[in-house]
Computed example of a mutant assay.
Amino acid sequence: MAVKLTKPEMINQQVGWCGGCGHGIIQRLIAECCEELGIVEKTVQVVDIACAYWSIDTLNCDGIAGPHGRCAAVATGIKKVRPEANVYVHAGDGCSYVIGLSETCFAAQRNVPITMIVVNNGIFGMTGGQMCLATTLVGDKTTSSKKGRDDRVAGQPFDMLNIISQYPIEYAARGALYDPQHINETKKMIKKGFENQMNDKGFSIIEVLSPCPTNWKMTPVESMKKLKEENEKVFPVKVYVDHTNNGGEANG
């Protein structure tokens, strides 16, 4: 029997992301999770002044755009005064792992009960496609590494989830968007992060490997192929920490 798929009611207007961008897929997954869990009315989104900002105009829930890179700190403040709310961050890798590295790490260290959804597209998107020290692959060309990232100059990208898993957090996982199976798995990860808040658990972070065709100078199809064949080799898709499963052991 065919199943008719409809747009989540939480999405109330079109958005301005580039064609082939993964942010729109992630936004839909967030909306589906909120509706399925019945938490739309109690959800507060925190977005960055970057590509994720479009979401604040599109999702029918409370939200705020924090200063660039400070999303984890803003979300922490909201959760302190609205502990009953489902507070989540929708931000990029540059925001969360470079400009806002300190804010992200200290929210994790304090095990603040928020859900961070970090879009890993290996680039600073909104500001023109510059190299992201945390996630741009060695050899990848950007507007600030025109000959390709040179690890002798800029160092190696790093797996932030491997690092942050050493903190006393509730949940850390990485999903991907390059095929329907991985999109469905990513949705489960996001839902898990929201359920942790509903169950009064601690800090959850879900990173998502996402394409950026515009700044990668690729077609959407080529971008998905790159995610699968190149980016995932450096940033493995898996659950790193889940303290509600097997006493906190990481899963491959």
Rank of each mutant, 00 (worst) to 15 (best):
K4Y: 11
K7R: 15
M10Y: 03
M10E: 03
I11E: 05
Q13G: 08
Q14F: 09
V15C: 10
G16R: 07
G16L: 03
G19K: 08
C21M: 02
G22K: 04
H23P: 00
I25M: 05
C33T: 09
C34P: 00
E35Y: 02
G38V: 05
V40T: 14
T43S: 15
T43W: 01
V44N: 04
C51D: 10
D57I: 00
D57L: 09
T58G: 12
L59K: 03
N60Q: 13
D62K: 13
A65E: 08
P67N: 04
H68T: 08
C71T: 15
K79N: 10
K80R: 15
V81N: 07
R82N: 13
E84Y: 03
V89A: 01
V89T: 06
G92P: 02
G92N: 02
D93R: 02
G94C: 02
S96G: 05
V98M: 03
G100K: 13
S102T: 10
E103R: 02
A107R: 06
Q109H: 15
Q109L: 11
R110N: 09
I114D: 10
I114E: 08
T115Q: 10
T115S: 15
M116E: 15
V118T: 15
V119R: 04
N121F: 05
G122F: 11
I123C: 14
M126W: 10
M126F: 11
G129T: 09
A134V: 02
A134F: 02
T136Q: 10
V138A: 06
V138F: 02
S144E: 05
K147L: 13
G148A: 03
R149G: 03
R149Q: 05
R149H: 06
D151R: 13
G155P: 06
G155L: 03
Q156E: 12
Q156K: 14
F158Y: 15
M160H: 08
N162F: 06
I163W: 08
I163M: 14
E170H: 15
E170Y: 11
R174G: 08
A176F: 07
Y178T: 03
Q181M: 09
I183Q: 14
N184Q: 14
N184R: 14
E185C: 01
M189S: 02
I190V: 12
K191F: 00
G193R: 04
E195G: 00
M198W: 01
N199W: 05
I205G: 04
V208E: 12
P211I: 05
W216L: 10
K217H: 15
T219Y: 07
P220H: 12
P220R: 09
V221I: 12
K225H: 09
K225P: 00
K226S: 04
K226H: 09
L227E: 08
N231Q: 11
E232L: 05
K233Y: 03
F235P: 04
F235V: 00
P236R: 12
P236H: 13
Y240V: 04
T244G: 14
T244V: 08
N245W: 12
N246L: 14
G247K: 13
G247A: 07
G247S: 10
N251I: 13
G252W: 11
